[in-house]
């Protein structure tokens, strides 16, 4: 309960902060439009040549793109800013300020930042998804939407766990700023369904950086491809990653030596 209250308080502060800069909304909207535009151009180049890509139709790939943009918005509003701050705190020794507060440190470092305007991408992603589903003329059942939301939530938790584990490397290596680039690069792979990729890459995108579960699985829920087994598997993997992330965080924290705060 306390965790939720804490997260909500920080979220509200983050929102109030950003609401002061309304013009940023339009800048964000413009940037989303550029991203959507280049994505659509990419799709139209592909479908200028073929009418399906490894069995995925144009509408289905549009749905994947929608989920990718939506999840990208979640990452950039709630996950990435917190992890970047954590990296800097470890580098500068200012993590002391979080550690001395009377709350669970992992929770605290995971909720301190919230970028409200980045949620624009969540809305844009949803719009694209709705367009895609309409194009597919698929009838949506309530169960499908529940599965979609559940898959999305598990995907977000999985991505958070991986971010936290990799950011924890900072406790040993110190300079890890480039991890942001690594993640953005790997996340970009989620633009296409993971079944397109060769085995070794698909395995990496499933178990190392679970882009497969964050983007492809929710998209499968919307395009009638999802099976119960996949959902169960996703649930199991999510639980495993939550525990792993906790362990890595705790071990890493032991190596932390705040030198200069």
């Amino acid at each position: 309960m306390n965790t939720i209250k804490l997260a909500w308080t920080y979220m509200r502060i983050g929102m109030l902060n950003e609401l002061q800069y309304r013009a940023n909304f339009f800048i964000q909207l413009f940037q989303s439009a550029v991203a959507v535009g280049t994505g659509l151009i990419g799709l139209s180049l592909v479908f200028g040549q073929v009418d399906n890509l490894a069995g995925w139709s144009r509408g289905e790939l549009l749905a994947v793109m929608g989920v990718h943009i939506l999840m990208g918005g979640v990452i950039r509003s709630a996950i990435q800013p917190n992890m970047e701050r954590l990296m800097n705190d470890v580098l500068n020794g200012t993590l002391d300020f979080a550690l001395t507060k009377p709350a669970d440190a992992q929770t605290l470092v995971s909720v301190r930042e919230f970028r409200f305007w980045q949620l624009t991408d969540v809305v844009v992603g949803l719009v694209i998804l709705v367009v895609a589903v309409t194009q597919l003329q698929a009838k949506m059942e309530a169960l499908q939407i529940v599965a979609f939301v559940a898959a999305l939530l598990m995907g977000a938790v999985l991505l958070y766990c991986v971010w936290l584990m990799v950011t924890s490397i900072a406790f040993w290596v110190i300079r890890v700023g480039d991890i942001v680039d690594l993640f953005q690069g790997l996340y970009a792979a989620g633009r296409w369904p993971v079944s397109v990729y060769p085995d070794w890459l698909r395995t990496g995108l499933t178990f190392l950086v679970p882009v497969a579960f964050a983007v492809t699985v929710p998209a499968e829920a919307m395009t009638n491809r999802l099976t119960g087994e996949t959902m169960l598997f996703a649930l199991g993997l999510t639980l495993l990653f939550v525990i792993l992330a906790r362990v890595v965080w705790l071990i890493g924290l032991r190596s932390y030596s705040g030198a200069s705060a």
Binding site: D178, G185, R191, L201
Partner: peptide, 16 residues
């Protein structure tokens, strides 16, 4: 880290 992140971009294009 940077280079591996960077290399996924062309690998995606290449695979597609």
């Amino acid at each position: 880290f940077y280079m591996i992140g960077m290399i996924t971009e062309p690998v995606i294009y290449l695979v597609v």
